[in-house]
Design a protein around this nucleic acid. Sequence first.
RNA 1: UCCCCGGUAGCUCAACGGUAGAGCAUGUGACUGUUAAUCACAGGGUUGAUGGUUCGAAUCCAUCCCGGGGAGCCA
Length: 469
Amino acid sequence: MSDYPVARVADVLAGKVPPGSKVTIQGWVRTRRDSKAGVSFIHVSDGSCFDPLQVVAPNTLENYAKEVQHLSSGCSVVCTGAVTPSPAQGQSVEVQAESVRVLGWVEDPLTYPIQPKKSSYEYLREVAHLRSRTNSFGAVARVRHCLSMAVHRYFHEHGFLWIHTPIVTASDCEGAGAMFKVSTLDLANPPRTPEGKIDFTQDFFGKQAYLTVSGQLNVETYCMALSKVYTFGPTFRAENSNTARHLAEFWMIEPEVAFNDLTADADLAEDFLKYIFKALLNERGDDLKFFADRVDKTCIERVQKFVESSFERVSYTEAIAILDKAPKKFEFPVKWGVDMQSEHERYLTEEYFKKPVVVMNYPKEIKAFYMRQNDDGKTVAAMDVLAPGIGEIIGGSQREERLELLDRRLVEMGLDPKHYWWYRDLRRYGTVPHAGFGLGFERTIIYATGLGNIRDAIPFPRTPGNAEF
RNA sequence: UCCCCGGUAGCUCAACGGUAGAGCAUGUGACUGUUAAUCACAGGGUUGAUGGUUCGAAUCCAUCCCGGGGAGCCA
């Protein structure tokens, strides 16, 4: 082995390595082509950028016939040699190999699941442990990382603290959907109370516990001391949802800001989304170009337009009026007081406004207990951000900071205020107006990339009946 | 969970009641500073599973399993 410094493919291709310098490249073979001129061209990817690096292996290498000519897609290699300008089209620089060492062979190239050709996303989901080696999933991973970092950078630069809210929760009424149960009890033979019910006092946490469906209630406690906070972590919904937009395990971003009202909340959502999409445009042009070429021609344009134009803002009442006058027959009739269906949201954002829309001030009956009641007595300070192509991407609200009104809503909705004792305490001790929202991270990714299914926006999708990997 | 559509070679698909085929991939050879290279030849299949109808089923029927699209729930 030589002692040449290890270089990332991204740095070599970006010209950060001076021509003539000798480097070590570590990665996986994408394709190999042999030339009778006495060289083989090996495209090596290490995941650091979209494009692979061309390694030119001459037939004078001692393992040329025995090994180099048998390299197939997926083999892991360590190559050393000089970086030189490429005489041929297709790449600016390449590496003239002095050595090509094979670390791992593909034991049966015929049945290697990842072949250098188009494979369907459906098929690749069945080989999720290997799909990271494809152009598509490498690009998704880099986009996901880029957006993650941008999320943290935005909040950090704007004075927010990242709060690590718990994954396991014992409040069974977070109100955002069905929950997964967490237990160490023997399922076949659980301890029983005298009444014959399962005795959760003997369970690990001494009471029934669940996986969180939202960090919001917890993060509000930190908001009431640290002013600007956010969560960014996994959340879980045990809904039997089988759609291209739902996961049982997904990542959510939930900022919460003290002293903010609903308008400030919508302003934050807009400013924040534009920031992370700008970062994506600046940093991952190579991957976005791939998505534009292969997945969705309009994706770059869409993200650019998103960054440049302002969100449309309408009240729920106005939105209903627009839908009422729409020259279009809806399957579900539109009426003030009912929740909007997918077809309604789509019409607003895709046909009527043709851009992201913030719908604000929904009827209180169709929204959660913690949302702040407006003076009209009919609506709450809730907002949804609707985006063309995916529908609801953000759901948020100003929170009810007045204890009396909060309690009234709890009772109206059949909830027991006792179960929310610590949440209510926030209103008893130094309460202030505050607002926040939840952004589905994977939905953000499919919006930006044009991916058709949310299961391809997360490395290992969990959906009903699917947790193989 | 409901409504549609689909499961055929390693992958993408064709054949739609009468001997199961192509492209890519793989192997061999030819050719070439090549670019998902090209050309020739070769190997490769209990047609998702189980029953049924039929002289005969990949094809028709039933049930189940798996996948996709749409709906609901939501982020």
